[in-house]
Design a protein around this nucleic acid. Structure first.
Lengths: 259, 259
DNA sequence: GTCAAATAAAATATCGATATTTTATTCTGT
DNA sequence: ACAGAATAAAATATCGATATTTTATTTGAC
């Protein structure tokens, strides 16, 4: 009884562990692969290819693709399929500014509304983050994926007490977007940066309930991500070659990839 | 040659006028129907029902539904289908505050960057809006749908010169959401409101390039939408019955509809 | 009578096949 | 040679049918 439709119980790339729909599986996996650069910005996403990759059917794959549309990780146009959302330094600059606006407000509200539970969660996630930062400083590669998770946890913990669902929703989308850029930057030249100090500054101010100071540090923290990527793209620090800067600014990240 | 899959050329509810995919058609129509309250908040959206309604197939309908997910007009959970996103006064309060934050910033940037073309577009759309406001004041029902379009145009024109794509993207989602609430309020008791005066205040300040003033009026304008809905839900203006207010605040709009 | 297990009905998620478009390739006339 | 029409190949969008789950209903023991 396995002729036409329905699921088979053969091996599936995307394991459907515990009540998780196939679409959801493909959706999450694909999102991950877009974020970590497996599919570079601008790349065409052929349904047939992906369908085969995730061992699911066309319509199902289509649905997964469509979900990513809502997170602005994928674009689609009329009758010519899907592709990974384009990325550019210009877009990242814009994204960063908006992120500052949104996360800063969320943080401010969190500090205003946060209770003891909020504080303790911050303390805990900051501690966990610090631990992995140590490992990172020693260049332990195994630490990288841990770092990403704990960094996200810390950021979430900070704004957790913000009561605005809409701010959380928007902040989530923006943070995810910036993750993509952060990883793009990682694959190139990295800038020296004392992440621990940045995090600690925000942490201290938040615990001290100094909203203005916490927002100031948070804004700087976010903006430094942008600086890092700008640096990665434009190694030439001298003021001479300003054209290079302009060129880099206009440059899209989408590499050779088919147009 | 019209046995199994593909399109037929029979009549279709959703006309595919000029290169517009069937999913897009269903998606747009359904969005409209959610916004205007044809499908009330919380309503279950059975694929079979909708599939039949729009004369398309199941998977295709599914895809349309999935798109609305990204605009937060529809929700989905595990293996139990889709439903219209819930609505509550609490959510609208939150939405309103975030809208003020975002639109205010967009307006500020627009005023900073706007050129003559921007100004003239505002002048034009304000004029058009004023005209329809006159008709509205005379209680011409035919004016309502025109008003909605021109109101949106005016708001868009105001922030059109804001260079941030992300702000536009977010503002778009939020505005759409608030449209749903506005129409929900319309179906109930309405509050006396001089919309023309509100619009004119924003208009004048924008043209005068007074960002602070324009933002102030815009914020008040947005917040008044909230006041209007609060009033519609809580006709009792006396301070006596504060419990009613609390009750109303917690109340979800999703009426009798199946849970 | 009531609660829970067993069964039936409804609804969801998924599939594989096909029609329609878009893109690439081959002609063909100047 | 080369632009443009004609054809072939590839890719997209869509369908109708089926397996899997969830929800409703019946049944049966205590």
């Amino acid at each position: 009884m396995d002729t036409a439709g329905g699921r088979s119980d053969e091996e599936t790339e995307v394991p459907r562990k515990s009540g998780k729909t196939l679409v959801e599986g493909a959706y999450e996996t694909l999102r991950q692969e877009i974020l970590d650069g497996t599919f570079e910005p601008g790349t065409k996403l052929r349904t047939e290819e992906l369908r085969a990759r995730y061992n699911i059917s066309g319509s199902t794959m289509r649905e997964a693709l469509t979900r990513l549309l809502g997170e602005a990780l994928v674009t689609t146009e009329g009758q010519r399929g899907f592709r990974v959302a384009p990325a550019s330094l210009e877009d990242f600059e814009d994204l960063t500014r908006v992120r500052v606006l949104v996360e800063t407000e969320a943080l401010r509200q969190a500090i205003a509304h946060g209770d003891e539970a909020w504080e303790s969660r911050i303390v805990a996630s900051f501690y966990r983050l610090s631990k992995v930062e140590e490992r990172l400083a020693q260049n332990q590669k195994s630490a990288i994926s841990d770092y990403e998770e704990r960094n996200r946890d810390f950021h979430n913990a900070l704004i957790a007490a913000c009561p605005s669902r809409w701010l959380h929703y928007i902040a989530g989308i923006l943070f995810q977007q910036s993750e993509r850029y952060r990883r793009l930057a990682l694959s190139r030249r990295t800038i020296a940066r004392d992440l621990h100090a940045e995090h600690k500054a925000i942490f201290d101010a938040a615990i001290a309930r100094d909203a203005d100071l916490a927002c100031k540090y948070a804004a700087e923290h976010i903006e430094r991500t942008l600086t890092a990527l700008q640096f990665a793209l434009e190694p030439d620090g001298t003021k001479k070659d300003r054209q290079a800067g302009k060129r880099a600014k206009e440059k899209e990240f989408t590499p050779k990839e088919e147009a």
